[in-house]
Design a protein around this nucleic acid. Structure first.
Length: 106
DNA sequence: TTTCTGACACTAG
DNA sequence: CCTAGTGCCAGAA
């Protein structure tokens, strides 16, 4: 079984400030077809005992395919993204501008 | 080992 | 705009 967790975390850390990636994009990046795994990784990682974990991981730069974010953290996430200069449209991330390919910057 | 769960994606209605 | 169903895969119990 491929260790997707490190790959996913590494991919998320690759996202520069002011940019975001969708769960599906990250899943595709690590070679899987379910964005659910990405969410699971984030959930387990956040639930981990490592206090320094969430500090190192810009989980707020991970959003859904349509630009919305997780319900439980959407307030904090939106605030952080806005602080980084991520454009918002009607409460959703403007993926047309902020989307990060993960390898080919625009 | 099997089973359940989940910070999702996508399509259909 | 919404809900419901299906596919999907790595962890945790």
């Amino acid at each position: 079984m491929p260790r997707v967790r490190p790959a996913i975390l590494a991919c998320i850390r690759t996202i520069p400030p002011g940019r975001v990636m969708s769960y599906g994009d990250i899943a595709e990046f690590v070679g899987i077809r379910s964005g659910r795994v990405v969410g699971n990784v984030l959930g387990t990682y956040n639930a981990d005992r490592d206090e320094h974990a969430d500090q190192d991981l810009p989980w707020h730069r991970v959003v859904r395919a349509d630009g919305t974010c997780a319900d439980h953290k959407r307030a904090e996430q939106m605030q952080r993204l806005r602080a980084e200069g991520v454009p918002f449209t009607r409460g959703r991330v403007d993926l047309n501008v902020a989307r990060w390919d993960g390898r080919a910057a625009r």
